[in-house]
Design a protein around this nucleic acid. Sequence first.
DNA 1: CGTAGCCTTGACCGCCCTCAAATTATGTGG
DNA 2: CCACATAATTTGAGGGCGGTCAAGGCTACG
Lengths: 273, 273
Amino acid sequence: MIEKLYARLAGLASKTGDVAEGVRELARQPSRVVGARELLFRPGAPAAGLFFITAGIACRYDLLSDGRRQITQFLLPGDLFGVRTCIDARFDHHVESLTALEISSLTPPILDELRTRAPCFIDALWSARQQEQAVFREWLINVGQRSAIERVAHLFCELFTRLQAAGLTIETCCMLPLTQIEIAHAVALTPVHVNRTLMELSRRGWLTFRRGVLDIRAFATLADIAGFDAGYLESPRPDKAQARLANRLRGTLHLPGPCVSSPAIEAAATLRD
Amino acid sequence: MIEKLYARLAGLASKTGDVAEGVRELARQPSRVVGARELLFRPGAPAAGLFFITAGIACRYDLLSDGRRQITQFLLPGDLFGVRTCIDARFDHHVESLTALEISSLTPPILDELRTRAPCFIDALWSARQQEQAVFREWLINVGQRSAIERVAHLFCELFTRLQAAGLTIETCCMLPLTQIEIAHAVALTPVHVNRTLMELSRRGWLTFRRGVLDIRAFATLADIAGFDAGYLESPRPDKAQARLANRLRGTLHLPGPCVSSPAIEAAATLRD
DNA sequence: CGTAGCCTTGACCGCCCTCAAATTATGTGG
DNA sequence: CCACATAATTTGAGGGCGGTCAAGGCTACG
């Protein structure tokens, strides 16, 4: 998974050497394991430091005073969060694991040190965070402008595409351990109506979603009716040359093997079992 | 307006000297004037460079293939946009002026040079962009979870608060040259229903909105029913000490006077006429 | 004075919400 | 391995918020 991060960040920075340095440092850190459905951060918690998800799925969400909840982002393997190097940064939202998670992190002191040792790595981090904004905007459009069936279809297209980029799909399937309630909170519909929508999507033969396994039978039609265009997920320059460079450098990273291993994590990370 | 930028960025950086340097450089640049309702950038346009709005209001929006439009952000005096120093950055959305605009900018070469001369200025820029994310999230919640009256109330609370921070309010009033159509596209309602909602808000005596002038009669109640909490707009550390520092340094900035002046701009920028 | 765009209002309709209950997973302790 | 509790899914009936369509009025601007 960490090579995927390297490939992604390398596309955002001018000096890939710096990026390799930073990624290597991240790989050197011990990884932490959290159980499913645990609250990782609550609003007000210090947000200094960089967190990297090696395996599992988490989400960010906001709570309204009357209990309404809006999930604002799903964090998949390969995603970063918590990067706020500025003074006294704090979370203003919740971060919760949906499955068991494996997380690596860089502490503020290490980040500070990397700032001088590998400045382009820090730049790449900022750029990566900046890219998220495109996803946020797409979610706003989703919730604001699209019908129920379009919203759910669009969410699934996005998640499938992102999981595919992380190498976590098999054929037309992927593990997507979300409840219909969580989907509802993400696309701003009632769980009841999400259910009806899923039924409809399934009845039309476009996808099935049962017990946390998503099988997209007709991605093209789905993407079409949802108005999904994968462009917003990609790096500004998914250059062939850069991809080759990444491949070539991958061997030089000297990545350590997995630090921990638990059945839950493995189950969460892949479909291979 | 440029002192406001300085005060804001100084709160985000560790070295205020660097920030002063960058802001001074920005002030040194010639400013550009654009008319109302002009398309500044379209998707695919190169986004390298930093733009700073001195006067006027603009917006970002996304277009769906069938013509549906979602406004994703309003850009007010004191706001930045377009900061993407990474390679080959391009806009993936539209930026359009709503009123006449006065804009300063830093070109990529100047930004590159500032990167070494005033690194903390660049950091502060990134942090500022990062702060926007909180606003984006709040919009998603607005559109996803709130009723029509709550949405409109929340949007007005946000815009009024931001204009107040920019010193562009007088008592309970501010100029807000938006059509009901634009409000509709921002809060994801039909223009017709925005109209009914405005009527209702006015009938309840909470605000009036006519001919681009917003008068909030009951901010507290409005904020209450909208669930508006200004916290997400503020810097992580709106420190008293830092504010004093900003005040003290303001005199040392040697800001040039306004480079241009047009009736439209003055009208757009203030209510004083 | 005419035209174009925006605002306003009314009637009607449909998508999605609400409430409620039945059914099916999931998990826990006996 | 089964009994039980809890949570998630499924399905139905009815209602309301906000959308759609349409027409008339207002304002700005040439």
